[in-house]
Each structure stands twice: as structure tokens, then as C-alpha cells.
Amino acid sequence: MLFTRASEYALLSLVLIARKNEPMGTDTLSKQLGISKSFLAKILQNLARKNILKSFKGASGGFILAKKPDKISIREIAEAAEGKQISVFDCSTDLGCCPSNKGQFCLLWPFLNKLQNKIDTFLEDLTLKDIME
């Protein structure tokens, strides 16, 4: 699957953080978005591990963007939130993952791979700044 709730919550959180321009805590974000604090905390930590966010501890801690919104691609955000390469279908990036490929050439794979490449390019070119506008 291309995007799950993790990607959605990551995007929503990043928009709020970018607009605030000061550290925002998980409590504040989860209340504003109406989502689980523990699930959001995992997502934000993944974003911090991939250098999309910086995290600060303490009473005035929280998360801020690690770079400008125009330097953060939607693909980068989704892959950090999901913890894996995003793909339209499991086999769209690698023919070897095709569940019906039993030593035969899959007739759909060239189309799926071409679609995947177009989506990858689109999501790489689309930035956090673009969705904030």
C-alpha cells in the first residue's frame, strides 16, 4: 500500500510543526490532531531518526523541522513514517517479489514498475512546502 495512517499522521504533524516554528510536544500534537499519543510518538521518532525532525527533551522540549519545508520531499516523509520503501504493489519495485512469478515473466510487471517510477518521481518532487500552500 502506498500510504497508511502513519504517513497521513506524519504529514499532518509536520504541517503543524512547520507552521508553529517552535518545538511542539507529542501531547500537544496528539490532542490537536485527535490521534493516539503513543502511535504518534513512534511516527515522530522515525521522522527524527531520518533527520526530518529534531527532538528536544525537557519541559520545553518537543519536535521542530530539521530542514526547511521545501527541502523535505513527500516521498522522504512517507518512507520514514512507514519504515520502508513505499510501493503501489509489493512487486512494483522488484519483479522477484511477484507472488505469481513462478519462474515465468509477469506480463503486468513492466506496467507496474513504470507506474511506480512515475509515482516515485512525483513524490520526490512534491515537498512539505507544496502541501502547506
Results as ranks from 00 to 15, higher is better:
S13C: 00
K102W: 14
K42A: 02
F56K: 11
K114R: 14
I74R: 01
S100R: 10
K129Q: 14
F89N: 05
C97P: 15
L95A: 14
S7G: 10
L16W: 06
R19Q: 04
M132R: 04
Q32W: 10
G83Y: 01
L2R: 12
E79L: 03
L108D: 08
K71P: 06
Q32D: 13
L29N: 04
I74F: 06
F39M: 13
L126I: 08
Q85I: 15
I72V: 04
G96L: 12
I64N: 08
A81D: 00
E124G: 11
L12E: 10
S7V: 00
Q45P: 03
P99Q: 00
S87C: 09
K114P: 02
A18N: 01
D70Q: 11
C106S: 02
K37A: 10
K102L: 14
K57G: 08
F63R: 07
K84G: 11
I74L: 13
L53G: 06
G58W: 03
L33I: 00
S73I: 01
I86D: 03
A10L: 01
I86Q: 05
G58M: 04
R5E: 08
L126D: 10
T93G: 14
M132W: 00
E124K: 15
D90G: 11
K20E: 06
F122M: 13
S87K: 14
R49H: 12
N117T: 06
L128K: 02
E133Q: 14
L107V: 03
A48W: 02
D130K: 09
S30T: 05
K42F: 07
G34F: 09
L65K: 07
F122H: 12
I77M: 01
P69A: 01
Q116K: 03
R49C: 14
E76A: 08
K42V: 05
I52D: 09
D90L: 13
Q85H: 13
A80L: 00
D70A: 10
L95F: 14
C97R: 15
Q45E: 15
K118P: 06
D70R: 09
E8W: 10
C91Y: 03
A41R: 11
L16T: 06
L16E: 09
K71D: 12
F56P: 07
G83L: 01
Q85V: 15
K114A: 12
G62N: 04
R19P: 04
L128V: 05
I72W: 00
T4K: 04
C106Q: 01
T93S: 15
V15Q: 08
F56E: 07
E133C: 12
S55M: 12
I119R: 00
F122A: 14
L14I: 01
D70W: 07
Q85N: 15
A6G: 01
D27N: 14
K114G: 11
R75T: 04
L108K: 05
G62P: 06
I52L: 07
K31N: 13
G62W: 02
K84T: 13
M24L: 12
M24R: 02
L44W: 06
K71I: 08
S60D: 14
K31M: 11
I64H: 00
I17A: 01
S13T: 05
F39Q: 13
I119W: 09
E124N: 15
Q45S: 13
A10K: 00
L128M: 04
G83V: 07
F105I: 07
E8P: 11
V15T: 04
